[in-house]
């Protein structure tokens, strides 16, 4: 993916309830998620290559791990945070939903 859509430049929250066998579904903050004491994991793509990965933290907010993203081939975006690196294969997206191949 040579360029990524500006729609993607936001924090995405995992919407487990909508996952399918082959897609992980993410939604923006204002999606009407069921309330939870546990923070939803997710990630954020920022213009210019900054990437932040969010995981459950000890005081109920998410712990943020900063990293970088870069375009991959085809529908892929390579993301790195800490020592981890992975490819996100973006199946579909708009400003309300992001679907990533599992």
């Amino acid at each position: 993916m040579a360029e990524i859509s500006p729609d993607l430049f936001r924090r995405w929250y995992r919407s487990f309830e909508e996952d399918t066998d082959d897609q992980a579904v993410y939604r923006p903050a204002d999606f009407p998620f069921p309330p939870s004491r546990a923070p939803r994991p997710g990630f954020e793509l920022r213009p210019g290559g900054a990437y932040v990965e969010y995981a459950a933290g000890p005081v109920d907010g998410a712990v943020a791990s900063p990293g970088r993203w870069e375009p991959g081939e085809g529908d892929a975006v390579r993301v790195r945070a800490g020592a981890a690196s992975r490819l996100l294969h973006i199946v579909a997206h708009d400003d309300q939903v992001l679907r990533i191949r599992r």
């Binding site: 000890p58 005081v59 109920d60």
Partner: peptide
């Protein structure tokens, strides 16, 4: 609070400017 989050806190020892708890109004 967005993302369905009910609330979050800060342990003692953190910056005073962010010390306290945040609660979504429906919780």
């Amino acid at each position: 609070l967005g993302g369905g989050l009910l609330g979050y806190a800060q342990f003692p020892g953190g910056p005073p400017a962010t010390d306290g708890v945040v609660i979504t109004h429906t919780g």
